[in-house]
Nucleic acid binder design. Sequence first.
RNA 1: GCCGACAUAGCUCAGUGGCUAGAGCGGCUGUUUUGUAAACAGCGGGUCGUGGGUUCGAAUCCCUCUGUCGGCUCCA
Length: 630
Amino acid sequence: MSGKNDAQLYAMRHSLAHITANAVQHLWPDAKFGVGPVVENGFYYDIDLSGEQSDAPKNGKRDDKLSEEDFGRIEKEMQAIIKAAEPFERFEMTVDEAVRWAIENGQPYKQELLNDLKRAGTTVAKDLDAAELGLEAVKGSKVKNVSFYRNGDFTDLCRGPHLDSTSQAGAFKLMRVSGAYWRGNDQNAQMQRVYGVAFATEKELRQHLTMLEEAKKRDHRVLGEKLKLFFITPDVGAGLPLLMPRGERLKTTLMEYMRAKEEANGYQYVSTPVLTQRRLYERSGHADYYLENMYATQEDEEGNQFFLKPMNCPHHHMIYEKLVESYRDLPLRLSEHAGLYRYELSGTLTGLIRMRGPITQNDSHIYVTNDQLKEEFRNVLELFREVYQEIGFDDYWFRLSLPDFEKDKFASESDKWEFAAKVIREVLEDSKLPYEEGVGEAAFYGPKLDVQTKNVLGKEDTIATVQIDILVPKRMGLTYADSAGKVQHPFVIHKNILGAFERFMAFLLEKTAGNLPVWLSPEQVRLVTVNQEPTTVAFADKVVAKATDLGLRLSVDNDNESVGKKIRSAELMKVPYTVVIGEKEIETGQLTPRIRKDLVASGEAKVLTVDEFLAAVAREGKSRTGKSSL
RNA sequence: GCCGACAUAGCUCAGUGGCUAGAGCGGCUGUUUUGUAAACAGCGGGUCGUGGGUUCGAAUCCCUCUGUCGGCUCCA
């Protein structure tokens, strides 16, 4: 798409946001409007109907909330506005005039934005820069004039640009309505956000909607059910998935891989209890931030209350105390694959991506001196690259998550924050790794380097993180003696490369549509028998025995069904290799493996001996290749 | 937690106040002994998510709770 078309599409989507608001205003004359920016594939507008008394109440219910039922009449009204071919006209007012306009028109949210603009020269709305709000503003500068756009009877504070006329609006569809806190702050009123998608042509819109349907099939929750990997049941609880044998196999394969990788890189594994006294979290400082997000036991008869651990750091810090006296003991790299539990708000739960537990984190804590910090951080990034490359995961980018010092959470020691952030930046720049920065995304104890990816519906997620802890070691009194015999506090690098194993499984499933490479497939080979004759079964048994010796995961489908149906069933389970066993194979001792389509380039079937075939699969498992060697 | 939508058989779904709640797939049984994406026949299978209410009558209307989906806030 050319830059000109991009600009045109942007203006079109932005104009549709105005047309949406315009239509809502026709139907609910007292509607109050927030902001209405362009987003990926479309636009939204934040609307508040509270206090609204519409002429057309629904079912006698209060009519102060939008619902998807209303979309039909809103869209109809939008079409009428588009058909009327109203020109978009730009004009300016002084800020004071604009504030008067907002008051006269009953637009308190616009008024607030204008007042902020006047006072601070900017509007501070999280995730929305002033330009997106439609305000021309440079931080610190005096704003005199603001621009407005008018079409027909609708006027909105807006930077533009817009279409020349409403008639140029393309194909659009209102998708959903959801709650959104005014200016992203949960202390503020909750408005309603109406989302729409919009494209230049009907065809593109239909393609987009089809793509969304297709994406649903790649959803790890759908695949988890179809591939018999995991499920969630209200009897156990929301956010508490149960892994079935296939899911556990996948998780264990990833865990074994990471453990071997880390042990080869000087990490030592430890094991710590899931229940812990409150005082540990008070000592670490986590109690100040996360106590209400931790599951607690009832007080026992001896008066003790325990918490399910939501992180491993404090426990590992206790081990540090036992093991480290001197700088000679550093760096110390501790790892644990522990199941963590966190109370997450019910509305945030998302399959294996966001869960309450067990969250099996690929968690390590690396204790270093000042001098070691940079090199060790570089080593961690190197390990990241190595692991992701071996796993074939290349769809990610880095985000340097920094504190927002205007928040209480990031209270003190700004020089240490700067130092840690500088180390991360230098390592990234030395390695020539592209990254973005995220202000306000840091942990309470230090800056983070997050690994970002997009899920199947294009939503951004953090897959893994490395953090430099500048606060907790001092707070917990962790020390070592430096070369001069002086007492020092170590830095701690918190790292998890695969994040939580469950979450990583989810990303893998969505990226691969369930077509896992051979080394990760719970079932690597399926033998399909042509008949149930004893000779056939005996031959299959012989292959199974050989495969088991090689450590392969192979199963036999000896059901009394047609070969075609059993092939289909293996295809649906995304088994990499399916091998039909019948008279021909028994006679010749040779197999013609059917290879899952994504694994192979040529469609030509190869004939191999049993030993050749099994050895090839074993090699592929060992090399973790994403392609078939056959 | 908040806003919106939704919850019917193992799965995907039909059924919007009126007969004993249906279909396809899966399952089970039998026949068939099968050659690379669905053999044929028969049989099971539901407290219509939970609890309450309205009604002569509720899967269907109202409320509660639980859970799911999409957002918002949050994410050590």
